[in-house]
Each structure stands twice: as structure tokens, then as C-alpha cells.
Design a protein around this nucleic acid. Sequence first.
RNA 1: GGCCCCGUAGCUCAACCGGAUAGAGCACGGGAUUUCUAAUCCCGCGGUUGCAGGUUCGAGUCCUGCCGGGGUCGCCA
Length: 584
Amino acid sequence: MPFWHAQLAAWKEAWQVKNLPALPRVELTPPDQKGTLTLNIFPLLRAYRGDVQAATQAVLQPLPHILQAEVVKGFVNIRFAPAFWGEFLREALLQPQEGYTRLSLAKADKLMIEFPSPNTNKPLHLGHLRNICLGECVSRLWERIGATVVRANLVNDRGIHISKSMLGWKKFFAPATPATTGKKGDHFVGDCYVAFEKAYKEEVEALKAQGLSEEEAMVQAPLFQEAQALLQAWEAGDPEVLALWREMNSWVYAGFDQTFARLGIRFDKVYYESETYGLGKKIVEEGLARGIFYRSADGAVWADLTDEGLGKKILLRRDGTSVYVTQDLGTAELKFQDHPDLTQSVYVIGNEQDHHMRVLIALLRRLGKPYADKIYHLSYGMVELPTGRMKTREGTVVDADDLLGEMHARAYELITEPLPEEEKQAIAEAVGQAALRYYLLRVEPTKNIVFDPAESIDMKGFTGPFLQYGYVRAKRLLEKAAEKGYAPLQGELPVQLESLEESVLQYLYALPHFMEVAARSFNPALLAHYGYELTRRYNEFYQTLSVLGSEAPIRSFRLGLSAVYAAAIQAVMEALTLPVPERM
RNA sequence: GGCCCCGUAGCUCAACCGGAUAGAGCACGGGAUUUCUAAUCCCGCGGUUGCAGGUUCGAGUCCUGCCGGGGUCGCCA
């Protein structure tokens, strides 16, 4: 409901006093109709026996400053008088932080938001960037509406894939290091992993040529056997294996930290699966003892979830080592040990793991964990190439660092303002990232994104730089006004407003609504579209009407409008994780 | 085969609890700058919302079936 929240509360109250059957829906009036807000009174007509006049009057009575109300079918379109907008702009300007762009709606909520949880055997790619943008954006949105947020990263630092990169290093790279090769640590380790996969594939092909099936070949290949032995040695605590593991991880972390820093994200808490899988195993043992799980003849431990349509799930291999879900059980428990007062535990994970997450929640429910129902899987679609999925082994992965560099270079080319080199670099970084991040956030999380490396990400139109540009122009306008001694919202208000002004005001007014809905629905795309539409309207206003050149009361009002626009779009960009440049 | 997600203009996406004539960007064609940054603005072109039923004052939205794409379904994470 796009009523600025404080006013909405008063209005709702007035309604409850009347004891009417239903509140009318409040919507933004569509652009082709005259008005700012529309009250949809269709649902009320029954109570008023089809008397549109009576229903309209009842609805309008508690609202202040109505200039005009037009009834079209079941819709009551309201326009507000300049006095209303003057009040609104003043309040928004007085408290751009607490009252307008930051809300106190979710003070009781405390969320842990887990992202991006990378594996430590390859560098970050475009899929991780989508994950990071979503996770950080959702975190900021909830903070904006008043909640406490704990950002958590879960590092998948153990498992067969790690053994593979370790073997890859031993066989093909040792004793080289990132330091000796000058390569970024995560990329270096990624190369080790790819080298392993290549050699492994060759072994599998050779075995298949000898008549083995694909499945047999994959298990019997010497490199795979070696990797498994390495994993067992790791779980047994072999000091030599652990030392190499630690060293290679430190290379990867140094690389990740560099990319995280460039993206401006940090975590309140980092979990390592190497530290949580033990707890996971313990939970499985307990479940086994309580008869919730069972042991098969070969010694593996299972959960039977067939009655929930989730099939059977292995929890411990026959050699006793843990699998993915085992460590996730431990991590889930640990999160609530660390923060017992969490109201929600959010996992930002791709939709390829929808099934896995359902299994995890089902297992926790069976174990009687009260937090099982506080888990929310923020599932998002894949970032695909026109040719299909990105695949490490085929070298079609779009590397995060490469893409950031490319965006920076392209943004740099577009800078026309004469500015010092250092500032140009900073702007290029801000604009490049905004284009990339907006591109990833403007699509609803559930949908797949097709990224075509041949067609670069746009900087014009429905893009991040579009929002930045609107902001920069508004700020420069305000600066120039200040130089001339013009102040916003001084003296009298204009007698009547231009429709282009009302168009901007309508959207400014709706900011808190969009902020709240985007947060609660975990859907940044809503705010991305809001920010675009708001800026589109402001640009139209800016392009068509003069601010500095207009008469005093109008100028002052338009400056107020511009100041609130700047505050609003800044808040939107911050929530969407877009950098906010002052020039471009 | 079972389950999950997706299907809207040539392409990329919207449509807030079911609401008014389904809207933007890109691309394409035309136009706007003696005035606040042209990464902007204006005009034009572009639709059987995958198909068929159902629910109701009203369906892109909800329900059923089908078609197409993707994901996933006991020992990768």
C-alpha cells in the first residue's frame, strides 16, 4: 500500500473506527489517469449495496488536503493539493534517514543471511556475482526497514573437490605458488583444479577404451582413487595433508578477499565446513540412535524421506566420511547456537539446490529442531550463456575479476567531463559496477539470466548508470542553487503544480512502500524497477521544466523536490548495492 | 518417469493481495541543446501474455490438462 507509513497508520485507524468490512486497496494511479493515489472500492461496493457515491464519501472523509477526487468505475482517483506535497517534502527533507529512507517496521526481526558460500577450488564467477549482489542487497533492504542483519559466509573448504585441486597442484604445479607465478591465489588454485580434471578425464577415456562403463571408469581411475585417499587422510588428520590444505586455502582466501574488497562486502561471521562437519556427524549419530535415520548393510547412514516425496538421502558414506548435507546440518545448528534469537535464517543459494534445501529442512524437522521452519531459501536462477550453462571444464566460465575489469574499462571510455585521472578511475569503477550489479538485480531472482559475452552490458536506458546519472544531475543542480543562495522549500508554495512535478512526487511518496515490499519479498528487482521509474520521471521533469530559471515559489518547490529525489535515489542505489558517484 | 522453476513485443525485462486501454529498455525510423551534465528527453514502429478449458463483476496473475525450455531426483559441494 503506497501510503507513507505514518500517514497510513492514521488513515487505517480512522477506518477501523468506522468498523467497515474491508479497507479499500490503495494503488498508485496509472499515468493515463488524473491523480496520485487510487482507492479501489470494488470490494466495498457490496457493503454499500452498489452505492458508489456513499462508498466514495466514506473513503475520502478521513483524508487531508484533497484537491480533486474523480470516480471512474470502481476507482477513486485522488489528487493532493500543493499544501500536502509541501508538507511531505518538508518531512522527507527533515529526516531523510530515519523517517523516509530508513524505516522502523522490522525492529523485532533478526536475520542471518548466508552468501555467497564459495568453494575453495576455483575463482569466483558471474554466478557468484549474482549471488553476492542478491545477498548484500537483501541484507541492506532488511536493515533499511529496521531489522538486524548478520551477514554470514560459509566456506566449502573440504570435500573431494578440494582434494582434486590439491592433487592437481602436487602433480602439475608444485613447487610453484601464487607468489612465484604472480598469479592471484584463487585463480592459481583454479588452474590446479582444471589441470586435475583434464588428466582425470583422460584416464577415464582410456579406461572406457578398455571396455569399462563410464561409471566404472570414473570410480576406478587412479587419480580419483588417489583423491579419495587424500580426502580420507584429510579427515584422519594427516599432518602433511593438512599443511598443504591450509596453505592452498590461504592462497584462495587472499584472492577472494581481494575480490570481496573490490565489491565492498564483508561478513560478520565466516563458517568453515571443515569446522562444522564434525557437529553434523554428531547430529546424524544422534538421529541414528533415536531411530530417525537408519544404517544400510554396507554401513552407510540414510534418511528415508520418500513419504515427503524427497526420496532417500545418504548422510554418511560407508567409509564414515560426511557428505554435503551432513555438514549443512552442523552449520544450521551452529548458526542458532551463535544467535539463538534469529527470527530467520536465510540461505542465498542457486535453484539447482532447491531439492537439497528441502531435504535439509525436512531432516531438521524430523530431528525436532525448532529452527527448521525459520530457514528461508532465497533461490535464484542460473546465469547462463547463449550456448547454455557455464562450465569450468570447457573454459566457458565468465570470471568475476575479468568481468569487473572489462566493465571498468568500458565505463572509463564514456567519461566526457574533464576531471583528474584519479577521479576518472573512481568514476569508471563506480559506473562499471553499477551497470553490472543492476543488470543482475533487475531480474526477479527466480528467473534465469542469459548473459551474452559478445553483447556487452548496457550503460544506457534501463541500467544502473541511468540511476547514477539522475542523481548526479540533481546534486549538481542543488549545488548551483546553493551557490546562488537559493534554498529549497522557502516561503510560499506554488498555487498549482505541473503534472510532471506530480508525476515525480507520486513516486517519491511511494519509496517506503517499495522498500518494504522488496525487503519482505526478498525481491530486489522490485526496487530496481522502482528506481528506474522514479529516475525516468525525474529526468522528464528535469529536461522539460527549468528549476533555477523559474519564479521564486516554484523554484523553491522544485529544489525541494530535487533534494528529496536525490535522497530517495541515493537510498535506492545504496540498497541495491550500486556505488553512488558525485560526478560522472 | 516423479518433483521444482520458467514461458509476455525481434531481443532483455515489468505489471505491487486478481483490477482501468498489458508497460519500459535495447534494436529500428524521426526529432530536441543561446538556459540546471545529451550516460538525457520527445514522437513513431512493435502483442492471440506458449495452447485449451475452468473459477468471477473482472484473469498475464488463481485452478486443471497439455506443449516448450531449464533444474533436480541415495554416497560432488
